[in-house]
Amino acid sequence: MANHSTTQTAHVQHHFVDGDQQFDTAKLGMWVFLVNEILFFGGLFMAYIVYRAWYPELFTEAALELNTFWGAVNTIVLIGSSLTVAMAIRSAQKNQTKGLKINLLITIGLAIVFMVIKGFEYSHKFHLGIFPGQFYSYEGLQHAQAPIFFSIYYMMTGIHALHVIIGIGLMMWIYVRARRGEFGSDYYTPVEMTGLYWHLVDLIWIFLFPLLYLIE
């Protein structure tokens, strides 16, 4: 198909004029999608605000049941992975396929570490009988509304963890494509979009950690 453009490559889909337009469009679309993600979590933050305002002492007491140390470790892990994913994008822009692959692998690794730690935290709570809602059976925290706090905790961290898992899947897919040599300075849109998504996942955790773990 005839296409009058200077930067035409195989990656430019037929309905775009050139690579720049395609890239700008993808980026705008991704930002719009992230706004939507923020509102999705926004509902949970709203529930958090309402119940924290109603039962402040519940939140202070219940937060003691969460393991601040491992929460902090996970925060560092995720911030680290945000750095490596940014480096992955940089590598792609500079045509360094090897750097791209290594940074992606580290990011995936850190994401898995996050999930493993989260898994240990969850299983420890289940062991104690800290289940969400009506299945709550923990004796150590005697507060009539304790199940509500943990419902919110599990919903927020659970949906966040789901986003981490999706992120791992996306990065594996990017890794496979990077191995095929698909990315370089002329085309790295999927790498950057995945990176944007990953930063959001990280950012949400940065809010969750103090709101849930660090209540005084």
Binding site: G42, G43, L44, F131, G133, I148, S151, M155
Partner: peptide
Amino acid sequence: TPVLAITLLLLTMERVLGMGIFDASMG
């Protein structure tokens, strides 16, 4: 729309797990 999504998810969880967020008897 994302707010509807999370609302319906919370309602679903309310039915599955008895989360209590919309249940007056649990606060």
